[in-house]
Amino acid sequence: MKKTSLYLLLLLTVELIAQNNSFSPGEIWKDTDGIHINAHGGGILFDRGIYYWYGEHKGTSNNAQVGITVYSSNDLYNWKNEGVALAVSKNPNSEIVTGSVMERPKVIYNAKTKEYVMWFHLELKGQGYAAARTAVATSSSPLGPFVYLKSYRPNKETWPLNYNEKWKKAPKDGEPQKWWSEKWYKAVKEGLFVRRDFVEGQMSRDMTIYVDDNGKAYHIHSSEENQTLHISELTDDYLGFTGKWARIDPGGQNEAPAIFKKDGTYYMITSGLTGWDPNAARSFKANSILGPWTPLGNPAKGKDSNLTFYSQSTFILPIQGKKDAFIFMADRWTPKTPIDGRYIWLPIKFKEGKPVIEWEKRWKINQFFK
């Protein structure tokens, strides 16, 4: 009897030691099975008291070999692997066949349709990043399996709200052919790629989804050859686009958008364009989600802030039950060994009306948010 009690106590002690009770950005983050979490470029859904973390399953390649994974947690520190939420297809004719690119999945719940809706950036197999599409899938459960529906080039044959009428026609002397020239930069700001993609639909790469207080959902994505962000209103079922959209920071070269709202003001954090390499983050604010958006500069402060602590934004997580409590979620990419990518989660503070992100080697929620 004593041996049995001692054994049970030992097991309990080991279990308690294995439990995470803080965040350690950049270190291996093990799930409840003791395996490094595999949910890169992810987003979080809070549903019925549980957090669900969706992300890209990485192996030795950045192309999709498994699909979109999902983990669950009730404390944000400890995550259970719930398996594959949306699997790649073995059908060679499928858009999400093994070897395609499935990035930055975000899941939201539609109270009207009772469906969980997943959006993600999709690139077709064998086409590199030329397809530039956004894709949607649905499920009756947050754990899936999600059923793939289709992919889009958004806002086909629709002009943005904040678009100058005179930009709708190409200049009489033609579009500039030489990229990166002064004339080309000016043309980008004045709708060069919007005109080019008007019939087919606008490009959509790095993306996120935001559901506003009134239930309206918005798709925020890098477009126009990654030169300009687009914010697009989704239909009431969250499965399509209404045609109401706006360009944000034309020619500003933003990607990896992450958005949140505080005291009625919208805030967005993005990154610049340096491929897999880190760069200085950017931040913006707006009184309306469709803009205009005002730049606020780099929210990261301190050592390595010029590289956003060697990471790139993916999502801003509101902590349930705590006022003005937001976590900056980012990825530290390792393109040569994608599976080893690390997660950088840091608290967002506010100073002089601007979001601020500072490095914390180890931190707990109650240190910053009451």
Rank of each mutant, 00 (worst) to 15 (best):
Y218I: 07
D249S: 03
Q312I: 08
D277M: 11
G42A: 10
V70E: 05
K166I: 04
W167E: 07
P92A: 02
R247T: 02
V211K: 07
A87Q: 03
L10I: 15
T60G: 13
K106V: 11
Y7C: 11
K336T: 12
L143S: 09
F193P: 04
Y343N: 02
T138N: 02
K166G: 11
H121Y: 06
I44L: 13
S5C: 14
Y267E: 00
K3S: 11
G99W: 08
G55Q: 08
L12H: 08
F284Y: 14
I35W: 01
T235F: 14
R282I: 01
V97P: 03
I348Y: 13
G41L: 01
Y266D: 02
T13S: 14
N62Q: 09
W119C: 15
I44T: 14
Q202L: 03
N62W: 13
T314G: 04
L86D: 04
P295H: 06
R342L: 08
G264F: 11
W345R: 01
S311A: 05
D236E: 15
S305L: 05
P278C: 09
I17T: 14
Y185N: 00
P257I: 10
V199F: 10
A187W: 02
I316P: 04
G43P: 03
S72P: 14
K2C: 04
K183M: 12
N164S: 13
D324F: 09
T13Q: 12
G252E: 07
K244N: 12
N21K: 12
W29R: 07
Y52I: 15
W363G: 00
L11C: 12
M102H: 10
P338H: 01
K349H: 13
K125C: 08
F120L: 15
S181P: 02
G321H: 03
I35E: 09
L296G: 10
K244L: 11
Q227C: 11
G191S: 04
A131Q: 05
G99I: 05
K361E: 12
T60C: 07
I44A: 01
L296R: 05
A280D: 07
G43H: 00
W359L: 02
K322G: 10
L9N: 13
G240P: 14
T337M: 04
D33A: 13
F326Q: 00
R48D: 15
F315Q: 06
T4L: 13
K114Y: 03
K285N: 07
T270M: 05
A130N: 10
S222H: 04
G42Q: 05
G275A: 13
G42T: 13
K354H: 07
R362C: 08
F350R: 04
P105T: 09
G240A: 12
P338N: 06
I35C: 04
Y218E: 05
I17M: 04
Q312R: 09
L6I: 11
H40T: 15
Y51K: 09
L273R: 03
V66Q: 02
F23C: 00
D173I: 13
